[in-house]
Nucleic acid binder design. Structure first.
Lengths: 157, 157
DNA sequence: AAGATAAACGTTACACAGTAACAATATGGA
DNA sequence: TCCATATTGTTACTGTGTAACGTTTATCTT
């Protein structure tokens, strides 16, 4: 499946079999290609443990692969990863975070700690239904809902 | 109160007495200064009727005042206007919108139409309380909640 | 009213975020 | 294998936002 990796042995951040197979499966069902470069970007995001900006990701990939990488390259990978649901974009910090449960695509809500930079992904059916009712009441046809709460997390208080 | 305006007759977008007095009152209670430049930026946002990007605002102000304006100047005005609650920042489009009800500061939710660019500001106590409960359940201490729904508005369907 | 103090403003230069256009390469299917 | 398509690379660019520093303006005190 990943020919390029075999040929060039592109340096990739450590990635557990769990996330790797999840990513492969998700791409297979969508008929999308999980190339070495895309997997590399995904692995780097997973290794980061926090949300990374696009340029943070570029830095990490450049060090890992010891070569220059153009912004556009990384943005294309990020577009892909968000399109297939493996990665979410955090709007309020313009950064990117691997999704908790890529198995079933979903809307998410985020708790963003301004102290340690950690991001907690939460899922509330109640919140979603409440938002649905509001949207309905305004005859608005929703495409995407962004819910992000900034503050201080449990550990930093 | 606005000395500079009297001296230089800085060109300012039309602004109704209603919004003007609201802005003056709000600044007075906060002990902040509503200068001509700040009022000018606010008036321009009000005249725009849609959310404006910082650089859109720069263009409009430059045309109105027939001179160059540095980005930093406008960003400082925007910082001020958001700080006193006269203007909100829309995170998902990186743009700025005059607030509906600056009288009583509040969290807002937004419905953003991708067709016509209109922004509807809504307020739901129910949504806020639901979000509060979620945040409490995670022992998270919230500072600001961003709720933005992108989609297609009633008129554009 | 004059001077001290702090806030606001202006200027230059820069860092970060994201995209357009086009060429080169790799991939999957007939 | 050859072709159509998708992906990647390169260069250059626009848009968003800030740092540092000096000047002007307003407010407060005397």
């Amino acid at each position: 499946m990943i020919k390029t990796a075999e040929k060039e042995a592109l340096a990739v951040a450590p990635i557990s079999a769990h996330w790797r197979s999840l990513a492969e499966e998700r791409c297979k069902t969508l008929g999308e290609r999980l190339t070495a470069a895309r997997l590399g970007a995904y692995a780097e995001l997973l290794a980061g443990k926090r949300a990374l900006s696009a340029y943070d990701l570029i830095d990490k990939l450049e060090k890992r692969q010891d070569r220059k990488i153009a912004p556009l390259t990384v943005y294309r990978h990020l577009d892909f990863l968000t399109r297939v649901g493996l990665v979410h974009r955090i709007e309020s910090t313009q950064s990117y975070l691997p999704c908790d449960h890529p198995q079933h695509p979903h809307e998410s809500q985020y708790l963003l700690c301004t102290e340690c930079g950690s991001v907690e992904e939460v899922h509330s059916k109640k919140l979603e239904s409440t938002l649905d009712r509001i949207v309905d009441a305004h005859n608005f046809s929703p495409a995407r809902a962004i819910i992000e709460v900034t503050g201080v997390c449990q550990d930093c208080q």
